[in-house]
């Protein structure tokens, strides 16, 4: 009897979970989470794939993007701005954030990381970890100087979100928020853009060649160092745009702790996919996003344990590392494993 009660409750919840409308909702939410994860982790995986640098400052760059993008939106959007204009300003903010963060990323690579390429890889982890401390504290100083709470979400930036994105829509019994759809669109566009860059452009070819064998690429007369700088800038730019998108998402929001909140999932996604493969990262983002959404549903409806989604994600990380250390799509040699 004592065992039967939780079992019945579990089967009951499972029945609810497997209803088509619930499943469709979970999958849509999962896709929106996957889009965010792909954007957060995409830049990290590009940088690691080419240079073997695990960038601990990646989360801080995302956080900078959230604040900077939020600032553009707060300055541009007024009470009377219509929804379409707000979305247009969002894309203006995308350009600004991408440019600024790419500049910052490029400067970091040239100034700080370049001297470390001939040291053991652990020093790059150490250095970027130090950079994180500096960037986070600098953000905290600036943010509190303007009278904002560094640890709570920036409400003014959240407030610039156009009304249609806050509303939720219903198709055939499946309800989905406008924001989730918007996130899926932006995420898919980013993934497509990076994919196109890597596979359809000459520069992308050089990047892939450099990831494969940087010495050989250098021998062919290509200045790999310049490519390193470009890719670091690109990765930082993508991180910034991801931050901008998060500034509109009430689950995340622009805040200083966003740096470590995004860094950990980014690591998880990159490692699960296989360090340095962009394709693997996209698939891993889908996996993690869908698992996260399912576990969130279970937590809300059946299991009284709020850490369930996060804990499951880290368990997947550990499991993948145990079973297939190079990740789902990784090549064994990348990363000096």
């Amino acid at each position: 009897m004592s065992l039967a009660v939780p079992l019945v409750a579990f089967l009951d919840a499972l029945g609810q979970f497997l209803r088509p409308s619930t499943l469709a909702e979970v999958i849509l939410n999962g896709l929106s989470k996957a889009a965010l994860y792909a954007m957060i982790a995409g830049g990290l995986t590009l940088i690691f794939g080419l240079m073997g640098v695990l960038n601990f400052a990646h989360g801080s760059l995302t956080m900078f993007g959230a604040y900077l993008g939020g600032l553009v939106l707060v300055l541009a959007v007024g009470q009377a701005t219509g929804p379409l204009a707000r979305v247009a300003y969002f894309f203006v903010a995308v350009v600004v954030v991408f440019g600024a963060l790419a500049g910052l990323g490029g400067a970091l690579e040239v100034g700080l990381i370049r001297p470390l390429y001939d040291r053991p890889p652990i020093y790059q982890i150490l250095l970027t970890f130090g950079v994180t401390l500096v960037l986070d504290e600098a953000a905290r100083i600036v943010v509190s100087f303007y009278g904002l709470q560094p640890i709570s979400d920036w409400q003014a930036a959240l407030g610039t979100k156009p009304g249609p994105l806050s509303a939720s829509y219903e198709f055939a019994g499946v309800s989905v928020s406008g924001l989730a759809l918007f996130e899926i669109l932006v995420g898919a566009a980013t993934v497509a853009a990076v994919w196109g860059f890597l596979t359809r452009t000459r520069y992308g070819l050089v990047v892939r060649a450099g990831s494969e064998d940087s010495e050989m690429t250098e021998a062919l007369g290509i200045d790999v160092r310049r490519v390193f700088t470009t890719v670091f800038a690109l990765g930082a730019g993508i991180a910034g745009v991801a931050g901008l998108l998060l500034a509109w998402d009430p689950v995340w929001g622009a805040s200083v702790p966003l740096a470590s909140e995004t860094l950990l999932p980014a690591f998880v996604v990159v490692i699960i996919g296989g360090l340095g493969t962009f394709r693997g990262t996209v698939y891993a983002a889908l996996l993690v996003g869908l698992v996260d959404a399912s576990m969130t549903w279970w937590f809300v409806n059946a299991v009284d344990f709020s850490g369930l989604p996060q804990m499951t994600i880290f368990l997947i990380l550990v499991l993948v590392l145990v079973v297939k250390p190079q990740g789902l799509f990784g090549v064994a040699e990348v990363g000096g494993h």
Binding site: L275, F314, L317, L321, G336, H337
Partner: peptide
């Protein structure tokens, strides 16, 4: 595991 992977699994 070793290197970056060791750091990541212990972090996990």
């Amino acid at each position: 595991l070793s290197g970056v992977y060791f750091a990541m699994i212990t972090l996990g």
